Amino acid sequence: MSTHFHVSGTGVTGPLAGLSSNYKWWVLVTAIFGAFVSILDTTIVNTALPHIQRAFGSDLHVASYVTTAYTLAQGVIIAASGFLANRFGIKRMYLLSLALFTLGSVLCGIAWNINILILFRVLQGASGAALFPLSLSLIFGAFPEEQRGLANGIFGIPVLTAPALGPAIGGYLAEYVDWRWIFYVNVPIGIIGIVICWRMLHESELQPTLPFDLRGFLLIASGLGLLLFGLSNLAYDGWGSGLSVTGPVILALLLLLLFIPLELRTARPLLDVRLFQRRNFLVGNLISWVAVASLFGSTFLLPQYLQVLRGLSSYNAGLLLAPQGLAAMVG
């Protein structure tokens, strides 16, 4: 959503042009740190959920919000990431996002009840929402056009393995250390990423007069948030629940339908929906959606099945999912 940044075929334009050839590799390293921890945290919690349930005496429905609250917050905030980076600077927003994400990880680790943990997960998800799209923009801005494929390939290895390796890492920490360390593990990674970003990256050209499509943001943020909320409750409450499933889903679809004609009439839209008229763009997005939904869906459901129904430990359940990470690296 609105994650367009000004790049050229030879890398960053304006004040960042002509930087040393080493600079682009430092950008790639920084991008990997931020994207890895953000994506890792979508799945590292899954194998630790039974431990969190026992620690706080909650049921699976409530405990599942530890995972879904993170995704909900990301879905709402990510729409504004492009505007914020263009308006205030991509380095500044990346640093702020990574710093707040790291702080949110610490707060999740010290949570004293399930409701506070869910609240801190919202903060963590909202803070880290911009990390992945900004990482891609940093890479596209630093690398010339002929090297972007190589950079994306290197970037994709840790990014694709993070959601699959998350259950194994989370299972080991929950089983043999403490479930709180599934959040603390982000802290050293985040600090290293912050230091590299602060010392090595250069700020992009600002656009202080860039207008913000507030109406479009409110529509898509509330629409995606309600849709994710309704679908996350479907397995527990069923379609018969108007307050937690049917109502939010219907309202979400109406808001998203309103979003399309609004963006078509807006001079500087949050999302240029005309892009979906391009066949390759549309097909590429559909394939990506199916791939991501399959990967993230399985990494949530399989740990619960293996632990609750098959009686495996958190670590063994996570190990059974580890081959997905190897397959993602090869693919």
Rank of each mutant, 00 (worst) to 15 (best):
S137H: 03
L119H: 13
I52F: 07
V106R: 07
N86E: 14
G75Q: 04
L103T: 14
V29W: 07
S81P: 06
Y94R: 04
A99P: 13
A31P: 02
R148W: 07
T102R: 11
L123M: 13
I77S: 07
R121D: 14
L96C: 15
T102E: 12
A111S: 10
T42D: 03
Q74N: 07
I44L: 08
L136R: 14
A35D: 00
A111R: 07
I52T: 08
Q74T: 10
F143C: 10
A73I: 00
A79M: 06
G141V: 05
S58R: 02
H51P: 00
F88Q: 06
I32E: 11
N152V: 02
G82L: 07
I52H: 09
Q124S: 09
V122P: 06
G104Y: 12
V66P: 14
T71D: 04
F143N: 05
F120H: 03
T42C: 00
Q74C: 08
I39F: 11
V106W: 05
A151W: 01
V106K: 06
A126P: 06
P50T: 01
A126D: 00
A48Y: 05
P144N: 15
S81A: 11
L60M: 12
V66S: 14
A63V: 15
L107N: 12
D41V: 03
L123F: 04
L119Q: 09
V66I: 15
A129F: 03
L98W: 04
A79Q: 05
F101W: 01
L150S: 04
K91A: 13
Y94W: 08
T102I: 11
D59L: 09
A48E: 03
A99W: 10
W112D: 07
G82T: 02
S81W: 02
G149P: 02
T30Y: 00
L119T: 12
Q147G: 06
G34Y: 00
L107F: 03
L49S: 09
Y70I: 13
E145F: 01
F88D: 02
S135D: 09
L119M: 12
L107S: 13
G125A: 02
G75E: 01
L96R: 11
A129E: 01
A126H: 03
I77G: 05
L96E: 11
A55P: 10
A151D: 09
F132R: 05
H51N: 04
I139T: 12
R87L: 08
G149K: 02
L95W: 00
N152P: 01
A80W: 00
V29Q: 02
Y70L: 13
T67I: 10
R92P: 10
N113K: 06
A111N: 07
N115M: 04
V37H: 09
I77T: 11
L103S: 08
A151F: 06
F36S: 10
S127Y: 08
V122Y: 12
F83K: 03
A73C: 02
F88C: 10
R121W: 05
F101I: 06
G109D: 00
F83Y: 06
E146T: 02
R54W: 05
N115H: 09
V29G: 07
T42R: 00
Y94Q: 11
F120K: 09
L117P: 12
L103F: 14
L138F: 14
G153F: 08
N46C: 05
M93A: 13
I114A: 03
I90G: 05
F36L: 13
S137N: 08
K91N: 07
M93P: 11
V62R: 08
